[in-house]
Every structure is written in C-alpha cells, then in structure tokens.
C-alpha cells in the first residue's frame, strides 16, 4: 500500500488542456443532447421510424400515460416488488454472510450451495417459481429475493473475511471482548462491502424484476412493455425502456452517493 501524505478531499489540479478544463457535468449534458438529436434523426428514416418512435411522440405518450395514472401505477408496482425482494434478501444475507465468515462449519455447510446457485441466472428460476407460487406478487418477490440474496451474501461474506487481522489484534490488546470486536471492528470494516453488495443486489433485483414481469404479471413496467408489444405500441415500449433505465440508474447513483458519504474514510476510493 502506498504511503500517501495528506490527500485533500477535492482535487483541483491546474490543468492545461482546454478539454480537461470542461466540467464533467457539461460533458454529460453535451452527450445527452447529441444522443437525443441522433435518436430524432434516425427516427426520421421511414423504416426505422416504424420501430423507433421519435422523441416528441414519446414525450406525448409519457404525458398521456402519466395523466391517465397508468404509468404511476406500473412504476409503483415495479418499485414495490424490487424493494420488498431486495430488503428481504438483505435482511437474510447479512446474518448468513457473517455466520459463514465467522464459523468455519457454517461456511462448509452453506458455501457450496451458494456457489452452485450463483452460477444459475435467477431468470432461469422463473418458470419454477410461477408453477410454485403462480404469477402473483409472491412469485415476483421470491425470484428477486433469491437473486439479490445470492449476490449480496457473497459480497458481504468476502468483506467480513477480508477484515485485517491486525485490527482485530489491536482491539483485543485494548481490552475488546468478542462483542466489541464484532460491533466495533468487523461491522465497520465490512461496511463498504455491504454497500457494494447493496449496489450489486439492487442492480440484480431490477433486471430480474423486469424479466419476471415480462413473463406475465398484472401491472409493472415489464408488463407494460409486454402488453404494448401485443398492440404494436412502440412508443410505450420505448417509454418503458427509458423509464426502466432511468430508475435503475437513479438507484445505482443513490447507493454510490451513500457509499461516498458513509465510507469516505477508505484509503482507496473507486472513481
């Protein structure tokens, strides 16, 4: 590990290149504008335009769907499923991961199964779950639960295993009991990994949800897209895709923000 002197939180190096002086947010804006213009242009090509509706149509569809209340209901249904499945996954993954890392026999019992099921894409479980639970909320939430649990348990487990043993020694010589070591050393040391797990878990929950909804559901963004496909409502399909993307992106950024706020003490920060 490199020994670095005082690293200031804000890097404001003097940069010479004009390109580098542009604020990153400006680049994002430019990129967005270019993207929308490109989209508008290709939608002008007749054959493409049949499939890719132009931005104005999408805007209109967006307003229609929003005012009719259908879009809100679909978004709400999807987010509700994701959060229920995800929270359930997190609540189960944390104790399982800590038990696995802390007790060797528990690890021996559980790890092979987790490693095995991790290689199965959760979407492959959907037909099974539909047979078992039908197509109701329970089925969707169970699939998301399985998907998020598997991702998070591995990440949190690795975090607990990676706790620097000298830190545990340092706590012990200062008089820490096992409970102190758990709460004051293991949990904070593993916390960044828990957040990484949360981020991976949310991403996995979101993609699994949409796949599950595509296979049949009442309400939900995936369902909205599937039904629109039956009536060739390309505008709704594209609107659905964009909204799925935006929500997924927002969730990811939200966790990243939390990560930066809560684990700023870390030596290495991913950029």
């Amino acid at each position: 590990m490199a020994e670095m002197a005082v690293t200031k939180p804000k890097k404001k190096a003097v940069q010479t290149s004009a390109w580098k002086r542009i604020h990153p947010n400006v680049m994002v804006l430019i990129s967005l504008i270019v993207g929308v213009v490109f989209w508008a242009l290709i939608s002008l090509i007749p054959t493409v335009g049949n499939i890719v509706s132009n931005p104005w149509t999408i805007m209109k569809t967006f307003v229609d769907e929003l005012t009719s209340g259908r879009l809100g209901a679909n978004i709400f249904a999807s987010i509700f499923r994701v959060l229920s499945g995800f929270l359930l996954g997190l609540v189960v993954a944390i104790p399982v991961a800590f038990l696995m890392a802390w007790y060797r026999p528990v690890r021996g019992l559980i790890e092979p199964w987790i490693q095995f099921f991790r290689t199965v894409p959760p979407i492959a479980l959907i037909p099974l779950v539909i047979v078992a639970f039908g197509v109701g909320e329970g089925a969707k939430i169970s699939v998301i639960f399985v998907a998020t649990f598997l991702v998070m348990v591995i990440s949190i487990y690795q975090g607990v295993r990676n706790v620097d043993p000298t830190l545990i020694k340092a706590a012990r010589v200062l008089g820490a009991t096992d409970k102190d070591i758990f709460l004051e050393v293991v949990v904070p040391a593993a916390f960044p990994y828990i957040l990484v797990g949360v981020r991976l878990g949310l991403a996995s929950a979101w993609t699994t949800l949409v796949a599950a909804e595509l296979t049949g559901a009442s309400k939900g963004l995936g369902n909205m897209i599937m039904e629109a496909g039956l009536y060739f409502r390309m505008d709704i399909i594209i609107l659905g895709i964009i909204i799925i993307g935006i929500i997924g992106f927002a969730m990811d950024k939200g966790v990243l923000y939390l990560e930066r706020r809560l684990t700023g003490w870390q030596e290495l920060r991913k950029s």
Partner: peptide, 20 residues
C-alpha cells in the same frame, strides 16, 4: 493465556482503525 489490559502494544504496522 490471552491479551490483557495491563499489557499495551504498539504494532509494527500501526493498526489504526481507518473508520475512526
């Protein structure tokens, strides 16, 4: 048989808690 409060240690690798 184990660590005790009457013995303090300064480790070769600092061993500071980075979150504190």
């Amino acid at each position: 048989t184990g660590p005790g409060k009457e013995r303090g240690v300064v480790f070769q690798q600092y061993a500071l808690f980075p979150w504190k």
